[in-house]
Amino acid sequence: MAESDINEVSEARAELLCYLVATLAASHSLTHEWRIDHVVESCRIWLRRNSLWMDWLERVRFGQLALKLAKRELKGAGIAVRQSNVQALFTGDMQLNYSCTVIKKMLALCRDAL
């Protein structure tokens, strides 16, 4: 199947951003460090899984926005990712768990950020 440009699918952009924010927040709650080294690979994995394409510069911008949201905006929006609830953020195959309240709040924050 051919890949589509993610810029043509606005909801996909919000979902990708949410995935990156959730990954960063989960990693931070487990390591107490902001591990940005996983953002590039997480972005590639999500895009490949969803048969979407994004220009490299746009991936960098999304990574920077995800870090900003995870570091500065989650707490202000009343979203806390604790070590005890990291597993609930994702499904068994590491996709977002859309039934999780924290993910629902993150997705709304990401939509607003775009």
Rank of each mutant, 00 (worst) to 15 (best):
W46L: 00
E41K: 14
H28V: 08
D112M: 04
L57N: 08
A88N: 06
M54S: 13
E73H: 06
A25I: 13
M94S: 03
D37A: 08
A88F: 02
R59C: 14
C110F: 06
S4M: 08
L16E: 03
E33R: 15
F90H: 02
T23C: 05
W34V: 04
F62H: 12
E73I: 14
L30I: 07
A88V: 01
W53H: 11
V60Q: 13
Q64R: 14
Y98K: 14
R13M: 14
E73T: 15
L24F: 09
E58D: 14
Y19T: 13
T23R: 05
T23F: 03
L30G: 07
V40F: 00
S99F: 07
R111Y: 12
F90D: 01
L96R: 01
Q95N: 09
C110D: 01
E8H: 08
G76P: 00
D93N: 08
A14C: 09
G92A: 09
L57M: 12
I6K: 10
A108M: 04
R61C: 06
H32W: 07
R49S: 06
C43H: 12
E8G: 07
T91A: 02
E11Y: 00
I103F: 01
L20R: 06
A80T: 11
Q83A: 13
R48T: 07
D37Q: 08
K68L: 11
V102N: 04
C43M: 06
F90A: 02
R35I: 14
K68C: 05
L74Q: 14
Q64C: 09
Y98V: 02
L96T: 00
E73F: 01
D37H: 13
E58Y: 05
V40P: 00
L30Q: 15
A12V: 08
V60E: 15
S84Y: 05
K71N: 03
V81T: 05
L67C: 06
Q87W: 04
D55I: 11
E11W: 01
L107S: 03
S4H: 12
W53D: 03
S4E: 12
T101K: 04
S99W: 05
I103G: 01
R49M: 03
C100W: 02
